[in-house]
Every structure is written in structure tokens, then in C-alpha cells.
Amino acid sequence: MTKFESPESLIELDPPSHADIRGAVRDLQGILTKRYMYYRYADYAFGIYGDGALTAENYHEILGFMSCLTADEATEFHKWCSDAADVWIDEVLSWTSQILTKSEDSLSNLAKHLRTIARQMETGALESRADDVLSSFDHYWKDAAGDAARENYGECIGEAVGHHTDMAFALANGAESERILSVAARAHIDEVIKTASAALEHGSGGSDAEMVIIKSIANKLTDTGVGKAFWTAVTIADGLSKLDASQAAQTYPVMSDKNPDTLKQEVRGAFDSVEEVLTGDREVFGQSLTTVFNEYRNLYREEEQNKIVPGIGGVGGRLDI
């Protein structure tokens, strides 16, 4: 199963595309049809010979049934099983679509666009203008009004610019985090399909499929300091380097049954695990982002609004935010 060696390695993770994964699911048609034929015949034979009479070992000895079918019956039997395989594939494809809903390219472009804006805020004229204002107040405005303007306004502009820039980087990292979670989900689903395919081929032996790591990386974000460092990082690699992959949460969806109907339940279980991990990660990331932004909201609300929206006339409580 997919192992993420470190948080940073998530950036380089390159699982098969959504289209390739869908292709791999469709490629299971032949073996699924064969398995349905086996198990449906087995069900029939149980009906004839009784439970326990048919085993994998004596299957061939009592197989006479197939050779007794007319050509039309054989075609009908095959179609019945092939249709069942199609249904299996359609269901798994729809589960896949419901997890891989977001366009990673669009998320990537959104993140790049936001990061460009954040960098412009960081390196553009805001900071030097803030310095100019404070310097002018320091040197050329020495009376009661000048003192008030400097204390409540001039000295706050630079800090406010820093907060605004940090928030813009946080939005970029938010979009990038969604993309990374989608990539990780894609890696997991790829493994689920490969494991299901192996189970159809080989049956028991099972799988050590582990839905690991991402959840534990996100858990570090519940530390407010780590959360802030992650969200305000100027690159996603910097952000991920603040996290730690050492505490892996693991679940082990097992896929071991050649019977397509039973296997489908196991695959559904594996998808449930992926959804659970992804939902949990999104919650932790989301709560962390909200916590960081609530700090800015609270600065504004708690009589320090000049650190967010500097106003030369002191604190007034203008924004309903």
C-alpha cells in the first residue's frame, strides 16, 4: 500500500490519473465475468447437490453442467454474468467519481494564482509605503495629533501588511492542500483497485492495504503554532516541512475473496476507509485554517483592529466580520 515517507513526499506523489484508474477498473471485466460464472454455477450446483457437496477441489468432477448447455443457453449464461460484471464496474466507478470530485489542475492553478498575489503583496510597494508613512510621521508630525496618528496608525500599518500577506499565502496553501488531499485519495483508490484485482486473480492471501499517514499529518495541525506556520508558509513545501509523519494512523481494509459480490463489499469497505480518512483530513485542515483566521478576526474584534485594518482615528469597530 502507498507509503508516504514524509509530508514533503506528498508533493512528488504521482499515482495513476483518474482516467487511468477508471481504465484499470474497466479492465477487470473479463475476470469478473469468469468469477461470476464460477460462483453462479456453484450456487446452482449447491441447489442440486446440497450445501457442502461442491468444493473447489471437486468442482471439476461435477462440472458436467456446462457441457450440457445448448449454445443459446451458454450465450445467455455468459451474458448474465457479463452484465453482472458491468454492474460491478459501474458501481465502483461511481464510488471513484464521488471521491475524486475536484479538478486537481484547477486547484493547482488556483493555488498558483493566489500565491502570485500573495508574493505581490509581500514584495510590492505595500511595505515600503508603510515605512514611508511611519517615517514621515516620526520626523515631521510632532504634536498631539501626530502622536495619535503614529501610535494608532503609522506603527500598525507594517504589521497589518504582514497579516494580510500571511492570509493570502494561507488561501494559496488551502487550495494546494485540497489538491494534495485529492492526489493522496487518488493514490489510495489506485491501491484499492490493484488490491481488488489481485484478490480476483488469487483470492486469499488478502491485502495489507493501509490507509495511512495523511490523517496523522493533518493531526499535527491541531497544534495552533504548527497550524499557523503551515498556513502562512510561502511555499507548500515549506508548509509541509512543518508537519510530521511520525504518527501513522492505520486502517487495514482486507480484500481476499474471489467471489465478486463478496469482494464488492470488501471494496466498498476500502472506499469507506478512504472516505473516512479524507473526510477526517479535510476536517482537521479546515478546523486549523479556521482557527488561524479566527485569530485575525479576534485581533480585529478585541480592540486591536488597527493591526488588521489600521485607521488613523483610532479604533472604531467598523467591520462586521
Binding site: 464510488w95 467519481s97 464521488q98 471521491i99 470530485t101 494580510h164 492570509m167 493570502a168 494561507a170 488561501l171 488551502g174 487550495a175 492542500s177 485540497e178 488531499l181 485519495a185 478512504v274 472516505e275 479524507l278 473526510t279 477526517g280 483530513d281 479535510r282 476536517e283 485542515f285 479546515g286 478546523q287 485554517l289 479556521t290 483566521f293 485575525y296 478576526r297 466580520i321
Partner: peptide, 19 residues
């Protein structure tokens, strides 16, 4: 039509509105 939560993007939207 999404099956696995959307807490991060929902938080993102609120953060974006604030900024």
C-alpha cells in the same frame, strides 16, 4: 455529489471572505 466531506473548502470560503 461528493462523498467525503468538504470542511477544508468550506473553511477556505469563510477565510477568503474575511481577507
Amino acid at each position: 455529489n461528493q462523498s467525503s466531506g468538504n470542511a477544508l473548502s468550506e473553511a477556505w470560503v469563510e477565510a477568503h471572505k474575511f481577507l
